[in-house]
């Protein structure tokens, strides 16, 4: 494909390669380093004497007889009961994704098929809601939630996350549904379907690529949330990210930073796997909003 004219001079090629290698290291090295270090003891990973200790692990070997140890993971998962937070996270993520996709597909479909003026204003309102930092809403949640005694439970956090998720979901699904030709459901309606039947039998079978992409981003929002879950969940119902933050507060002083390191690595693994399998959808989702405008 590259013609003679587009061939680059050697100097530029070297410069480009160096730049890309540096970026690749900047993007990937911190994760590799932390993964490697999570199997060491604290004095190796945070070594005062020599940074190479984190690679070779002399003190880990001294303590456990082997340069690798799962002590950080055992401490975090079993002693500090991080597994509870993991289960909570997946419960929250599962329900947030399911509910927000259900509400979002109905709403987004309606927005894409209605030509009335209020559609624009609804989308603008959603955009404004999307721009609000979620933490600004939290002080509005607390008094009523305490009053009704629903503070601290998973369903409360789920419903709040669903609502915070809605503006984004609506925008994304709206643009996906607009790409599905209107003629499809209109011809179904000509054949005697109601709007809902047209949606059910004609649109649902063809909407999955867009829904999966939106679902991935809903999942990320619920999984990555810290501000809302930290404020709305009680200690026993914590999800992973507030639990990691709690490790910092309580265990750092006891010299158990490695619990936090292990928890951080554990929280990264699902995301790593997700990017591996859904790279294409993530990229298309990120660009969907952008390239159109």
């Amino acid at each position: 494909m590259a013609s003679k004219a587009q061939e680059k001079p050697l100097g530029l090629r070297i410069l480009l390669t160096v730049f890309l290698v540096v970026w690749l290291i900047a993007a990937a090295f911190p994760f590799m380093w932390t993964l490697w270090g999570s199997f060491k003891v604290e004095l190796d990973f945070f070594s005062i004497s020599n940074w190479r200790d984190a690679l070779t692990g002399p003190r880990t070997e001294f303590t456990y007889g082997h340069p690798f140890t799962g002590a950080g993971y055992a401490g975090a998962w079993i002693q500090e009961e991080f597994w509870r937070s993991v289960i909570n996270t997946f419960i929250v993520c599962f329900f947030v994704v399911c509910i927000s996709l259900t509400l979002g597909t109905l709403g987004g479909y309606a927005l894409s098929r209605s030509g009335h003026n209020y559609v624009f204003w609804l989308l603008i309102t959603a955009l404004i809601f999307r721009a609000l930092p979620p933490i600004t809403l939290v002080s509005g949640y607390l008094p009523p939630f305490f009053e009704w005694n629903i503070w601290g439970y998973l369903p409360t956090a789920i419903i709040v996350l669903v609502a915070i998720n809605q503006p984004f979901t609506l925008w994304m699904l709206h643009s996906f549904f607009q790409k599905i030709p209107k003629e499809l459901d209109e011809s179904a309606k000509v054949d005697g379907c109601t709007q809902f039947q047209a949606f059910r039998h004609v649109i649902i079978p063809v909407m999955w690529p867009g829904v999966i992409t939106t679902g991935l981003f809903s999942f990320l929002l619920a999984y990555n949330d810290f501000a809302v879950t930290a404020m709305l969940l009680s200690e026993s119902n914590r999800t992973m990210i507030p639990a990691v933050a709690a490790f910092l507060g309580t265990t750092q002083t006891e010299g158990n930073v490695m619990f936090a390191v292990a928890a951080v690595v554990s929280a990264t693994v699902p995301l790593f796997i997700m990017v591996m399998f859904f790279q294409r959808q993530i990229v298309s989702g990120l660009t969907a909003g952008a390239v159109k405008g």
Binding site: L103, G104, F129, S139, P167
Partner: peptide, 20 residues
Amino acid sequence: FFLPTAMAMLIFIAAPIVSV
């Protein structure tokens, strides 16, 4: 079609703003 998502946003985004 729009009611469920509108309710979610009204109760958990618009109302909290007023309350704040």
